[in-house]
Design a protein around this nucleic acid. Structure first.
Lengths: 132, 132
DNA sequence: CTGTATCCGTGTGGATACTG
DNA sequence: CAGTATCCACACGGATACAG
């Protein structure tokens, strides 16, 4: 997992905030872009097939496969295999996965409201420094 | 930025969900572990100095420097330089940064509630497959 | 259709040394 | 104290080929 660093951090000064440790943990689990996006997509559609997710998210086959496996392992996503020809696999959120919708959507709403402001802030910031 | 991939994604089938695009954007901005942790820490303490953040987060000097600069550029964090000896720099959240507290804390709360469940799910998952 | 395996470029991030 | 600069290892992730 290798979180944080050890640089001079002898055990005498372990003053980490406990909350941060937890956040840290959760982010290493569901905090990556692809996990979030898969969860969003499943929360919107309820059930999606492998290639539906792949196309709608613009994710590579490899990363989708890895992401789904990870989410399944974490108990956030259900995988149902229909052994037909051609094969059909349906993914959906588990109960726990569904409970993630609210906080994730909260983040999404914040994004919608503030992305423009961030862009402005960047322009402003860059403008000030480019007179170097 | 290079998000997504082009693999067979000719422009005829651009069926991406709009929400995902936004989430994608926000995650590329404030979604990384260090940004989140810095925001959490600042939201708890109000104001923190460089080395306070460094120690409490277990982050390397390099990454903290980069992260803070990025957050400042995005208009989420204020940087106040006190030209004393030794120098003293204080970081705090901007108004926009503060508005991020709620969604981020929501995610944090979810984490606290569900990390244990995730661990259990993993154990269960691994248990089932290790009989290979 | 639903994946797995391999290759490999790029970015992330720690370690270390140095500056004001 | 508050950074910057350099080096370098490793993980992330796309491209491609192949399999069930």
């Amino acid at each position: 997992m290798n979180l944080g660093n050890k640089q001079g951090t002898n055990m005498l000064e372990t003053t980490k905030c406990p909350t941060c440790d937890r956040i840290n943990e959760v982010l290493t689990r569901v905090g990556d872009r692809w996990s979030m996006l898969v969860i969003i997509s499943l929360s919107e559609y309820g059930t999606r097939r492998f290639n539906e997710l792949k196309r709608s998210l613009g994710i590579s086959q490899r990363m989708l496969s890895l992401t789904l496996k990870k989410l399944e392992r974490d108990g956030l996503v259900n995988r149902v295999y229909h052994q037909t020809i051609p094969p059909k696999v349906e993914y959906s959120l588990t109960e726990m996965g569904n409970s993630l919708r609210e906080p994730v959507n909260a983040l999404g709403s914040w994004a919608l409201k503030n992305l423009e402001k961030i862009d402005e802030a960047r322009e402003q910031y860059d403008l000030v420094r480019e007179s170097s």
